[in-house]
Computed example of a mutant assay.
Amino acid sequence: MALWTWGANSHGQLGLNTVSEQVEKPSKITIDFYNCEVKQIACGGGHTLLLDEDGRLFSCGWNSKLQLATENESHIFQRTWPLSGITFTNIACGWDFSCGVTDDHFLFVWGSNSHGQLGLPKEHFSECVKPVRLEVKASSVSMGLRHSAIINSKGEVWITGCGKYGQLGLGKDVTSLDRFTQVQNIGKMSHVACGQKHTVAWSTDENALYVWGDNKHGQLVLNTEKYNRIFTPQKIDIDVRQKVKKLLSGWTNVLLWLEDGTLYTWGRNNYGQIGASDSVGQKTLISLPDNRQVKDVALGSEHTICLATDNTLWAWGWNEHSNTGIQSKTDIFLPTLVPIDTKATITSIFAGSAHNFIVTNDDEPVDSESNPDSD
């Protein structure tokens, strides 16, 4: 296994043992962190969590709010010892806060609780919180800028944090929560995703999208003039009649990856984050060049990376910190090939606010000229 990374690195969040404004192209991490096999990587605003196949947690990067669950900032992946002995199966990061789901489905939270986004009462917990196990069970979890949502085993959505724009979905009067509270008037949900100021959820049973929160940029697939903010969940039929593999959200854009490999995106497009030259706010079909099929996809705050079944990696969106890995001083508005100096098979991909990671099955380098698409 080899781990590659690129993008913003102002807090050492890439784990390369260096701090820099950015790393412009995919670079291999040579530091050996216990020879672990990567199961999942979650990225926040400037920090990174890594979960291995044994359920152990590692972290690096920004730690101003204790979002690493350790005492000090680290520029390499280090074992998160305060959480040793706990087996995690899923992890997530918000801007400066984090969480992990255990093998018995309990939720641990840590980091910033400035807006109640950890689900901990602010009168009893400081703004910076060391790991706490909540009496909350979660099957899946998503964290945004200042709010968090979980789905439990019943398919219920529970939510906490900032709700000024309706992102809690509990009505105009609920602008803030510091305890997880159930979202009402929605059915059994299979997916949930938190954006900057909005929330989206998918019901497999109903083949329907539920949306609430800020719609200034069409991230809720509704008319922006008529529906600027939605304070309670609205059910939308977006004419999808198959299973959803992933529902993902950036700050102001949303992506839906379907069972047959189809990608739909919508929302803000000022940086090209929906992968099209226009179509702001409208459901847009994204196609990779030469009819390539999608193997996996990951979203940062305003960029996307996408792995094709032919082992090529594509990216689009915000590129100020070389987020896409494409050598360009401008943002990338269409799916564009990411040059990677290896012929190893890419097995998984992950993205954060402005940084990325990919896992390959070995680290055999190869001259870039051997890639027929490299030019």
Rank of each mutant, 00 (worst) to 15 (best):
T175K: 15
G169T: 06
R133S: 13
D290P: 00
T304D: 04
W266G: 03
V192I: 13
A354G: 13
I41S: 03
G187Y: 02
G161L: 09
I91M: 06
T309A: 14
D296P: 05
K246S: 08
L107T: 00
D237V: 06
G281W: 04
S277L: 15
G169Q: 05
G352H: 11
D239C: 14
I326M: 01
C43D: 00
S353Y: 06
I274P: 02
L16Q: 03
S59R: 01
N223G: 11
P233F: 06
S353V: 01
Q22R: 14
T70H: 02
F106K: 14
K246A: 05
L50A: 10
E206S: 08
H191D: 08
C162S: 11
V366S: 15
W314V: 02
W6M: 08
V109S: 02
I86E: 02
G119E: 03
D173W: 04
D214T: 07
G155R: 01
T345V: 15
V19F: 06
A42V: 01
C162P: 01
S148F: 05
I358R: 02
G116V: 13
V280G: 08
W4R: 10
I159T: 01
R241N: 15
N253C: 06
I76L: 08
I41V: 15
D296C: 11
V338I: 14
K235S: 10
S353E: 10
W314S: 01
W62R: 12
S59I: 00
C194W: 03
D362N: 15
D331E: 14
T342R: 01
P131E: 00
C99K: 01
G281H: 09
W266D: 02
I186H: 09
T360D: 09
G281C: 10
G267E: 03
V192P: 02
